[in-house]
Amino acid sequence: MTKDALTLYGVALSSRLLAGTAQYPSPAILADAVRASGSEVATVSLRRESGAARAGETFWALIRGLGVKVLPNTAGCRTVKEAVTTAQMAREIFGTPWIKLEVIGEDDTLQPDVFGLVEAASILTRDGFQVFPYTTEDLVVAEKLLGAGCEVLMPWGAPIGSGRGLNNPYALRALRAHFPEIPLIIDAGLGAPSHAAAAMEMGYDAVLLNTAIARAGDPVGMARAFSLAVEAGRLAFLSDPMQPRDMAAPSTPVMGRAFTGVARA
């Protein structure tokens, strides 16, 4: 384990990239991409099974073979009841108290229903879950989620699957500054490795992404690119980046410059 470990609910991780497992061209490419990303955490879901098909068993065997921790989600849930029931079902089948809590409030943006999110988070933490809430950049909602027992927050960068990057950097900076000790993970909306690097440079603890890797022409190459970007961004943050300024400042020494003190022809 490196010195700069990320600790989520007491679990120390070397990688600061959490990988989704959906939308890959094939199970083999999914496995190769997760390995190339260096991720130690993969998100998974629960869906309706048909008796004869048993697709779930095959997928679950593939994920177990990767040796990563799983973070089940409640994707698609639109009510507190749906999300809580899905979380309880996920805990039994995946054998983990971790849950990526999504309560979706709006179809076009897949924006979290933050009222339902706080209520569901409160119910689940009382029931022993370790909740990773998919939320917005709203400070007050963040406070309420922490009050509900969440120890990690996952604000969106942009709407799920949009690939737009960090839509509201001002508010994300404010959130980071307001909760310096809370693990904050940018979840959703990242499209390019530069977006991930920007989030990490801002001081976010990790990023969670799926579509940007899975939908790339070469998902394995893109997984590696994101891994490098996350590492670069983290190292940059720890190295205290310079502050931008409005006016130029020469980088080459001014002292000793030739042709000074001589009248120009």
Partner: peptide, 10 residues
């Protein structure tokens, strides 16, 4: 009745 099993997720 809902009968669910593991699937890919983001």
């Amino acid at each position: 009745v809902e009968i669910l099993s593991p699937r890919q997720g983001g």
